[in-house]
């Protein structure tokens, strides 16, 4: 079971490390990562696929607490495909 997180964050030094640190500490395995800055460089959009899908909303709450993170959306893998 896995799920997908779409994260919009301020493009600050170390922000990706902070996000990945939370994923590791909260015991989710990272299955896929895509990250790219927005055209003006002020933000970064990150898509993570992680395992342990029954706890996705809990992980998203921890990520939302990071000061540089602005939004976190959680999709189950099936839902993400249907939107994709």
């Amino acid at each position: 079971m896995s799920f997908i997180l779409q994260i919009r964050m301020k493009n600050m030094e170390g922000v990706l490390e902070r996000v990945l640190g939370v994923v590791r500490y909260r015991r989710h395995g990272l299955l896929r990562l895509m990250a790219h800055p927005t055209p003006d460089g002020s933000h970064m959009d990150v898509t993570l696929k992680v395992d342990k899908g029954n706890n996705g909303h809990h992980l998203s709450r921890h990520l939302e607490k990071l000061f540089d993170v602005e939004t976190v959306e959680v999709y189950s893998e099936v839902a993400a495909v249907s939107y994709g």
């Binding site: 030094e13 170390g14 902070r18 640190g21 500490y25 607490k65 000061f67």
Partner: peptide, 27 residues
Amino acid sequence: IIGMTFSIVKHSFLVTSAADLPRVVRE
């Protein structure tokens, strides 16, 4: 120290420009 404390701080700032200090201290 920033890297080694990510998981035990609410947030951290590495101040690389004096111009950032006013904002950083308030935040």
